[in-house]
Simulated scan of single mutants.
Amino acid sequence: MRQLGIGELARQVGMNPSALRYYESVGLLPPAGRAAGRRVYPAGTVRRLALIKMAQRAGFTLAEIRDLLDGDAERGATRQWRALAESKLPELDRFIEQTQILRNAVADCLACGCMNFEKCALLSAEGPGAAGPGDRGAPADEA
């Protein structure tokens, strides 16, 4: 079986070797073997790290990922993954909704055009509509 040194593995997956050592210390990676005193990992570790990175992007905590990876296929790792994924979907939906709200706020600021943070009605404590109609702050050349 092909072995990868920690530096080679880190380059392949776009991570720092220190992150790989950390993942090993918290149980996300099995203990590395040693060759000439240096850490070496089976080539299959690339796939495991791809799963870890995907799960992190999806919002799973390292503890959740470790639980998933510790699952034994014979004891229902697929069921465990399904349960974790189903519980994560509502959280992801909330994140998407909140991100869309932020995106709309940035787009509204761009559309306002006043470019004056001190006078912009969109940024006032009272919120949009607090200023009179058409009073959205000073035009950009007055800022």
Rank of each mutant, 00 (worst) to 15 (best):
Q3N: 09
L4D: 02
G5R: 08
G5A: 02
I6S: 01
I6C: 04
G7D: 09
A10Y: 11
R11N: 06
R11C: 03
M15Q: 14
N16L: 12
N16Q: 12
S18E: 09
S18L: 03
R21W: 09
Y22T: 04
Y22E: 09
Y22R: 02
Y23S: 01
E24C: 04
L28H: 02
L29P: 02
P31I: 00
P31N: 02
A32T: 06
A32R: 01
A32K: 00
G33C: 09
R34H: 13
A35W: 03
A35K: 08
A36Q: 13
R38M: 09
R39P: 10
V40F: 03
V40W: 03
V40Y: 01
Y41L: 12
Y41K: 02
G44N: 06
G44L: 05
T45W: 06
T45G: 04
V46G: 00
R47P: 00
R47F: 00
R48E: 06
A55F: 05
Q56F: 03
Q56E: 09
A58F: 14
A58I: 06
G59L: 04
F60W: 08
T61S: 14
T61Q: 05
A63H: 12
E64H: 13
E64N: 13
I65E: 07
I65A: 08
I65K: 07
R66C: 14
D67S: 12
L68Q: 13
L68N: 12
L69A: 03
D70H: 14
D72M: 11
E74Q: 13
R75M: 10
G76E: 08
T78I: 08
R79I: 15
Q80F: 10
W81T: 14
R82M: 08
R82A: 12
E86P: 04
E86M: 11
L89W: 15
E91M: 13
E91K: 07
E91H: 06
L92R: 13
L92W: 15
L92S: 11
R94K: 12
R94W: 07
F95I: 13
I96T: 12
E97K: 00
Q98E: 12
Q98V: 06
Q98R: 10
T99N: 11
I101D: 01
I101S: 00
L102F: 01
L102Y: 05
N104G: 08
N104I: 09
A105K: 04
V106D: 02
V106W: 03
A107R: 12
D108L: 05
L110K: 15
G113Q: 07
C114V: 00
C120T: 05
A121Y: 03
A121T: 01
L122H: 00
L122I: 01
L123M: 09
S124N: 06
S124F: 03
A125V: 01
G127F: 03
G127V: 11
G129Y: 05
A130Q: 13
A131P: 00
G132M: 01
P133S: 00
R136V: 01
D141C: 14
D141T: 15
D141A: 14
E142S: 11
